[in-house]
Every structure is written in C-alpha cells, then in structure tokens.
Amino acid sequence: MSGDWARLPERGNLLALRLIRWIALQVGRPVGRALLYPITLYFLATAAEARRGSRLYLRRALGRQPDWRDLFRHIHCFAATILDRVYFLTGGLDRFEIEIFGGQRILDQVASGQGCLLLGSHLGSFEALRVIGVNLRHLPIRILMNVEHNQAITGLLEALNPDLAGTVIPVSGPDTLLRVQESMEQGFLVGALGDRVVPGEKTVSCQFFGQEAAFPAGPLLLAALAECPVILFFGLYRGGNRYDVHFETLAERIVLEPRRRQEQIAGWVQRYADRLEHYARLAPYNWFNFYDYWREEAG
C-alpha cells in the first residue's frame, strides 16, 4: 500500500499524501471523494511511471488495450483507498459496509492459541482488516512493515492510530524474522505482504497472468521454518463505501524436504500467485503496484 508512493516521485507523493490526509480530516468524506477527481487527474497527468505500470498491468488483467478511462479508474481506486485509510485509522468504521468472507478461520486460529502467517498483497487495502482485527476485535495481530522505506506513510498515517502503530514489526536487520517467529510462537497472527520483491532477498519465478514474474520466497519459507499455517487475506475496495475482506487458507503447514526444497517452495509461491491472480480478476482496479511488475521493459 505504501511502497507505491515511494515509487512515485518523492515530492508529488508527499504532497498528495498530505493533501488527502488533510482533506479527510478537515472536510469529510463526501467532499473528499469529490476532490479525488482532480487529484486523480493530476496524477494521471504527472506520474508517468505509475501510468506506464498501470497500462502494463491492465492490459493483462482486462485482456485488452486499456484506454485513459481505465487508467483514470485505476488511479482513482487507489486514491479512494488512501482517503478511506485515514477514516479507518481514526476510527470511522461506521460509515463503511465491510463484508467479511471466511472470517471464522481467523477466529478459529486465534482460539487455538497458535500463531500463523497472514499473507496479503498490494491488491486492495489491508487497513480495514488491521483496524477491525486490532482496534475492534482485539485480536493478537502484528504487522511486518518496511518502516524505513515508508517514512512518509509512517509519519503521516500511522501516527493517526498509535494503538495500531504499536503492532508493527519494523523490517530492520538480520534478526527481523527472528522477532516474527517469536511472535508466532507466542500466538500472534503476523501479517505481511507477499507480492513485492525486496532487493537481495530470495525470489521465485511464477506464472502470473500468463507471464513469468518474480515473487518473494521469503514469506512462505518463513512459514515453513516456523511450522505455522498460512492464511491469505485480500481487502478489496468495491466502490462507494463497500469493502470485501476475504480470508482463505493457503496451507495448514508447509513441509519442505531438503532435496526438493527449491521445487516445493516454488510450488507454494505459485499457489499464492494463482490466488492473487484470481482476486485481481475479481477486482482488477485494486492492483496497487504501479510499476513494471513483469519487468517487461527492463530489457
């Protein structure tokens, strides 16, 4: 959710973030939503890299050449979820209609006292899930987040909800996953996003919308080492004030045999990519990786 901004030009990025935050806090959602149109237009006109990324993705997801209306809709969807993020963080859940699918799996997991990996993506918004889970239901959730790379988001958005900020495990140094594993041992559900590659970390090549793309192997290797279940989540924005949150089990346990480790982990990451593709087809404009995801133009 956050890294997209890091990939847009730093200046416009911070400015837009401040602007949306200000609008959300000062003028209310109806006016704020009206203002999203000029903001979206501004981005459509100025963020060339985001536009290119959007076009490359939409061509695959829609199965046709996207036109400017598709691009507008894509960026607008992103801006709308950022605006709503401010409301989620400041406790304005009442104004939303949030439908949860498969939520019993999460409650069962919490009741078992065993930790697990909650694996999401940059498809849609994870904020509704985070706020419902932590603030409303008081579930033992922690979120692995790259705080250093997202200082703007952390300063401007996370600061709005100190309770939630306290549940973040920052990515920092080699012992980060040690901390994650300890949290899981203590029964925490640890949330992470599994669709963006971090330079220097292990990757697996997967089929995604019919073409190879690199996915991080780390999250599922972590689940294998921690011997914990993996539950996928997708918080899809459905327009207006509606969000659908989907949970489904990817694996009760990931067991890797030493000799077939590479092949087996690749198989699991491919299953994740398949489910991501499935939900991306359900809500194509929710894809918030505004860059050349398949590295088609990398040469």
């Binding site: 990515v171 080699p174 012992d175 980060t176 040690l178 780390g218 290797l221 972590l222 080492l225």
Partner: peptide, 10 residues
Amino acid sequence: LDSIDALELA
C-alpha cells in the same frame, strides 16, 4: 545472506 537465512541459522 538475507533475513530468512538468519532465522534458519538461528
């Protein structure tokens, strides 16, 4: 090495 390696090593 990466942080997965660190965990596995630990």
